[in-house]
Design a binder for these strands. Sequence first.
DNA 1: TCTGGGGTCCTAGGACCC
DNA 2: TCTGGGGTCCTAGGACCC
Length: 402
Amino acid sequence: MERKILHIDVNNAFLSWTAINMLNNGEEIDIRNIPSIIGGDESKRRGIVLAKSPPAKKFGIVTGEPIYMARKKCPEIKIYPSNYKLYKYYSNKLYELFLEYTEYVERFSVDECFLDMTEFLMGRDIFDIAKEISSRIKEELGFTVNVGISSNKLLAKMASDFEKPDKIHTLYKNEIEQKMWNLPASELFMLGRKTIPKINKLGMKTIGDIAKADKNVLIKVFGKHGKQMWEYANGIDNSKVIYEYQQPKCIGNSVTLPFDIVNIEKLNEILLLLSEKVSFRLRKHNLIGNSISVQIKTKDFEVFSHQKKIDISTDQTKTIYEVSRSLLEKIHNGQKIRLIGVRVSNLSNKDECQMSIFDVAENKKQKKLDDVMDKIKDKYGYNSITRAGEINVRDIINIRED
DNA sequence: TCTGGGGTCCTAGGACCC
DNA sequence: TCTGGGGTCCTAGGACCC
């Protein structure tokens, strides 16, 4: 049976939500109507464009580019900081609204959802439902969305990416040739900047070219990815709308430093801060992991990583920190470090994990310390307490409260 | 006044086992 | 004597997404 899938995407999410928040706080200008962007902190070397207003887009400003580039394109551009708490708030509001229409809602990102409406049409036309959802969001929440309608997730997602903002598009199987095949290959979901030149080299420019290409040639050149791009170009996608909560596969934190650091002691202090944050989040999720990895990016943007499997899964700050330290020692050869990160993967649920009495390597003292710190963080905020070693670097890097 | 931070998935090569 | 072949696990790196 043909499914009915909606993909709903907030237009310029971070900027729209910031605009509404400002209006609610008495601001008179709607920053959606002037050249404006949401951007990171340039003084901390995090100055990239995270979202742009439609007038900013007219200047050719694109998401992900450095703010100084945006300023070059439009000197009068207004720049506003990001606010993840606010984004989470509106994301939840949106999700709650969708649940009124179907229980099958997949949160694809903070500003995108897939809805499987197949069993919840109640005899109504899917386009009418899309219109109702769209106008309710506008009236009740104050921002606009794009809605894509189709019989699978890929096509619904491609459809929502057509003309913006505040539009509803269909992309059914019989519309693929007319609506999708003439688009450049780069528009196809999962075709990124590294693959496009290779596709072009094979003489393919449009999505239609890929769709009509020999599938086996694509598989030969790109492996699994080749199979997927051929299927996507032909509108084939059998993936389900995943509406149940998915346990994360890894939890990591990384930070771009405000200036390059070579000193290993300083780097270790930052590692402690990151280990603290990662393990705190693991404990919040009731997860433990046994693969610990450290990533660095040098001043020349070279990326290196090392990882290590430990015998017993952990969520303890001290263990994660100590393994991270040894990993950093192996990668670091005196390079100037721009970014450093810690990640724990191979996660399992702490309660479901059956450990023999001999496996419980949990250091009781450490566990108590973690527990106490967590409680204080919960009560007074994440940054309310630090381990002694962290204090120096806390001024250098600024840990977000979210 | 150069280029974020959170993820997921895949691949290639080496170690090791039978 | 002159180097099997299948399988699993681990690691490093890379592509892609929002």
